[in-house]
Amino acid sequence: MVAIVSVGSARTLALRPRGGGEGHRLPLGHGDLVVMGGSCQRTWEHAIPKTARAVGPRISVQFRPRGVR
């Protein structure tokens, strides 16, 4: 499990199934919290894609249980 808090400029969170397939793009704004359980981490890839233009400062803080990688 991982919990991610996004602070600052809004960005897009991209999710796609491991091994290919149609993905999803979700807006991620200031103060948003995303929680992904173990099965989500095993079956989906996630990323904050680079943008062609500057969008402003952003910090992403991740919380994981001890011993989980």
Rank of each mutant, 00 (worst) to 15 (best):
G19V: 03
S39Y: 09
G56P: 02
G56Y: 01
W44D: 00
A47E: 13
P27Q: 01
G21E: 03
G8Q: 03
G29C: 04
T12Q: 13
P65T: 05
G29E: 00
I4Q: 06
H30N: 15
T12N: 11
G20I: 06
H24G: 05
T51W: 12
S60Q: 07
G37Q: 02
R18C: 10
G38P: 14
L33N: 01
L33V: 14
R58E: 04
S9E: 11
I4G: 06
I48D: 07
S39I: 13
L28E: 02
I59V: 11
H46D: 05
G37I: 04
I59D: 12
G31K: 01
I48L: 15
M1T: 08
L33S: 01
V68P: 12
W44I: 03
F63K: 02
V34M: 10
M1W: 03
G21T: 01
V34H: 03
R66K: 10
L33P: 03
L26C: 03
M1L: 07
P17S: 04
S39G: 11
G23N: 05
G20K: 08
L26M: 06
I59Y: 11
A10S: 15
A54K: 15
K50C: 06
P17Q: 04
H30A: 13
W44V: 03
A14Y: 12
V35P: 00
V2A: 08
H30T: 11
G56T: 01
K50I: 01
G29Y: 00
R11I: 02
V55H: 14
V35F: 08
V61A: 11
I59W: 10
A14W: 15
S39C: 11
L26D: 00
A47S: 15
G8T: 00
V35L: 08
G38N: 07
Q41Y: 02
R69K: 12
V7K: 09
I4W: 06
C40F: 13
R25L: 15
V7S: 11
R64E: 07
A14G: 07
V2I: 13
G67S: 04
G38H: 06
S9D: 08
A52F: 12
G38K: 05
I48E: 06
R53L: 02
A52L: 13
I4L: 12
G31Y: 00
P27Y: 01
G37C: 05
H24E: 13
V7E: 10
A14V: 07
H24A: 12
P49R: 09
S60I: 01
R42S: 11
I4V: 14
V2S: 10
P27E: 01
R11N: 07
T43A: 09
V68N: 04
P65S: 04
I48M: 12
E45G: 14
G38V: 08
F63T: 12
A52Y: 13
D32P: 04
G19M: 06
A52K: 14
G23Q: 08
A3S: 08
R42Q: 09
E22Y: 06
R66L: 15
A52S: 13
R18H: 09
R58C: 00
S39M: 12
G8I: 00
V68M: 06
P27L: 05
G19C: 05
P17I: 10
A47Y: 12
M36S: 00
V68C: 10
G67D: 02
G38S: 09
C40I: 08
V55W: 10
P49G: 05
A10D: 11
G21A: 04
A47L: 12
I59R: 14
M36A: 01
V55I: 03
G37T: 04
H24P: 05
G29Q: 00
A52N: 14
D32V: 12
